[in-house]
């Protein structure tokens, strides 16, 4: 079995995995980080989105061996020193989640957007989040939360 070495939420991980192991299964089954969800088997829902090498990707559509040598961040790695990430705080304040199933993927995806475009308008936020399906359909507050976070981060937060 291939041995892979990667960093997950700033912690080094070395392990043997079958080549066919999906990244999401490494994260959920092997590392027990169950904040990353699986919502579909057609690569369309975005519940499984994590950061790999500084880019948001669907961890259900990538092999664990492809993440060898890379930095991976899941929702569990967003809060720092007991402080919520500004996006998490904004979701909390804006009621940006209902059941919360889609939230980890949405938050990671939105963090990738804000890295590329620190001041997106509403249309750009909606377009970027096309790959994240919220079955509770609470899109208004999701967009509001991302917008508030962008505004606050610009304010030097």
């Amino acid at each position: 079995m291939p041995t892979i070495k990667l960093t997950v939420n700033a912690k080094p991980v070395t392990m043997e995995v079958e080549a066919r192991t999906l990244l999401v299964d490494l994260i959920r089954e092997h590392l027990k980080l169950t904040g990353t969800h699986v919502g579909c088997d057609t690569s369309q829902c975005g519940a499984c989105v994590v950061m790999v090498g500084g880019q948001s990707v669907k961890s259900c559509s990538m092999l664990a061996v492809e993440a060898d040598g890379q930095d991976v961040t899941t929702i569990e790695g967003m809060a720092k020193n007991g402080e919520l990430h500004p996006l998490q705080k904004a979701f909390h304040e804006n009621h940006g989640l209902q059941c919360g199933f889609c939230t980890p993927g949405v938050v990671i995806s939105a963090s990738d957007l804000l890295k590329k475009n620190p001041s997106p308008d509403e249309g750009q936020i909606r377009e970027w989040l096309e790959g994240n399906i919220c079955r509770c359909t609470g899109y208004h507050n999701i967009v509001k939360a991302v917008q508030q976070c962008a505004d606050e981060m610009k304010g030097g937060a």
Binding site: G46, V49, M62
Partner: peptide, 9 residues
Amino acid sequence: IGDAQVRNR
């Protein structure tokens, strides 16, 4: 094409 994550890969 697709969505942001599909375009990233």
